[in-house]
């Protein structure tokens, strides 16, 4: 479990980093928090010629809120999200989800940009980004482009990022007074990748939900929206029957994989349970920091 040899460079500016990527392209990998890259190198699952350590690009760090927009730099660590008053107030879904991401040692190094760009289908943050319709700010030599979260995740570990591009920030709309988020996951041990997880966001009016987004993770190659279930929960008073119908509709929305942790059928059952839980929470939220 030792990595094959590789070259290493630590650029001092974004433009320098982009220049290196443009020159080395496919043979280079970006190193941010290293929580996925380093094990992959040690297990020789990846053998890049060049590791580009972007840890020195301080402009890519930090969380700011302005005019109803929250911008989170790609190098912002999980622990920074956990401690951010801006996140709690304006992007509460992230504040809830981040507690489920791994363990303190990993949260102290892992970054939001690393998690999004690595696009592990079992990771929490990509699903949250899709649920909240985040915008990915992507820099390249030709300038900056914005990719909607819905179009960003293409497959297992596969995103819309080009080999010469760098994800520099995520942008979220600050939640409005009538919007709510909910999050639930089932993991065998606290901090593990979930067997199934669900990030949800909606506009709430008494017992009615609108603009419902239910984004499952660890249940397909990318974060998966349960569109049929969303439609059944949208725009009508929520009753036990509505929720049951939405749960049944997941059969059409989800095609979970089987692996050593859970069968496909077990994941379906868990997905139904999580749907009921997040709907309850959307209607009757638990304050952040309360409960276990």
């Amino acid at each position: 479990m030792k990595p094959p040899s590789f070259d290493y460079v630590r650029p001092r500016s974004l433009s320098e980093a982009l220049g290196i990527l443009a020159a080395r392209g496919d043979g280079a990998r970006l190193l941010a928090g290293g929580q996925s890259l380093m094990p992959a190198l040690n297990m020789r699952l990846l053998s890049p010629e060049l590791v580009v350590d972007i840890g020195g690009l301080d402009d890519l760090r930090g969380i700011v809120e302005r005019d109803g927009l929250v911008r989170i730099g790609a190098l912002t660590r999980h622990v920074d999200l956990q401690r951010s008053a801006i996140v709690v107030r304006h992007v509460p879904l992230l504040a809830v989800a981040i507690d489920h991401v791994a363990h303190p040692a990993i949260r102290n190094r892992g970054t939001i940009g690393g998690s999004i760009a690595f696009a592990d289908p079992a990771a929490e943050l990509p699903a949250c980004a899709v649920a909240l319709q985040a915008r990915m700010i992507v820099a390249g030599m030709a300038g900056t482009r914005i990719v909607p979260a819905d179009e960003f995740f293409l497959g297992i570990y596969e995103t819309a990022l080009g080999p010469d591009e760098i994800l520099v920030a995520l942008e979220f709309d600050a939640v409005g007074p009538d919007q709510r988020s909910a999050f639930a996951e089932l993991a065998r041990r606290r901090g593990d990748y979930a067997l199934v997880g669900l990030a949800a966001h909606a506009r709430v009016d008494a017992d009615r939900l609108d603009e419902v987004r239910l984004v499952y993770f660890s249940i397909g190659p990318t974060p998966v929206r349960a569109r049929t279930a969303e439609a059944l929960l949208t725009g009508r008073p929520l009753t036990r029957d509505t929720v049951t119908a939405a749960q049944a509709a997941l059969a059409a929305d989800l095609d979970p994989p089987a692996d050593t942790q859970a069968s496909s059928a077990a994941r379906r059952q868990m997905a139904r349970v999580l749907l009921a839980r997040v709907v309850m929470e959307l209607l009757d939220p638990v304050p952040i920091g309360a409960g276990g």
């Binding site: 067997l195 859970a262 069968s263 059928a265 077990a266 059952q269 868990m270």
Partner: peptide, 12 residues
């Protein structure tokens, strides 16, 4: 495992 418990309960 959750799978084995769910299977015993006939929920799979």
């Amino acid at each position: 495992t959750p799978d084995r418990v769910l299977a015993a309960l006939g929920k799979l």
